[in-house]
Amino acid sequence: MTRKLAGERLVIATHNAGKLKEISALLAPYGIDCVSAGELGLPEPEETGTTFVENALLKAHAAAKAANLPALADDSGMSVTALAGRPGVYTADWAERQWFEGEPGRDWFMAMGKVEGLLTQLGPDTDRSCWFSCVLAIAWPDGESAVYEGRVEGQFTWPPRGTMGFGYDPAFVPAGHDETFAELPPEAKHRISHRADAFAKLVAEQFQQ
């Protein structure tokens, strides 16, 4: 991959305010002007991929084509060892309310509760190790693209703790720490997260000589 971003406007292919804030903070030192797909009124493509890579590329290409600008998409999720890697690529789907669970939308506490319920069924000595994966995909309007993958190991904890994260952050304690991602200050999380790992690889290729 030889193509590089250079002071361009970049579409962040998300409608998730927490994810946009985190990605924009990571890109801020490089002078990239970020705008979200939500701010541009772009539709959210159906995530039909069966892997994080497939979904990240799908979202990046859709946003790049619709906005006629380079686009960066993130597909990420939690995988739990004892649940054979679930929810994995379906992490967000586990937060979707069914018709009998209230108004449409995502309920992350419910999603974390589903994980806890399955682990509880397996017994008190069940392995609670898990990991967050992140795939960043950059796409240009002409169809060129690049992919960067990151990962962070940790433990699933219950009950959820903290208010500074989003998604499954309140139930994830990264390896080597006592606080959940939602208890850590954002700058501390940014240094160790799966997204930070993927961004380090993106930065090495896109912004460093």
Rank of each mutant, 00 (worst) to 15 (best):
K19C: 06
L20E: 01
K21G: 11
S24C: 08
L26F: 03
L26V: 02
L27N: 03
P29V: 09
P29G: 13
Y30N: 03
Y30D: 06
I32F: 02
I32W: 08
D33Y: 00
C34A: 00
V35I: 14
V35N: 09
V35W: 01
V35D: 08
S36H: 04
E39F: 01
E44G: 01
T50D: 15
F52I: 00
E54C: 01
A56Y: 09
A56T: 06
L57W: 00
A60K: 02
A60H: 04
H61Q: 15
H61F: 01
A63Y: 03
A66T: 08
A67G: 03
A67I: 01
N68A: 10
L69A: 02
L69G: 06
P70D: 08
P70E: 08
P70S: 05
A71F: 07
A73S: 12
D74N: 14
D74C: 05
G77F: 13
G77D: 13
S79A: 15
V80E: 10
T81I: 08
T81L: 11
L83Q: 05
P87L: 01
T91M: 07
T91V: 02
A92H: 11
D93E: 15
W94K: 07
A95W: 06
W99Y: 12
G105P: 11
R106G: 03
D107A: 06
W108Y: 15
W108Q: 12
M110H: 10
A111D: 13
V115S: 10
L119A: 00
L119C: 02
P124L: 07
D125Q: 12
T126H: 02
T126M: 02
D127A: 03
D127T: 08
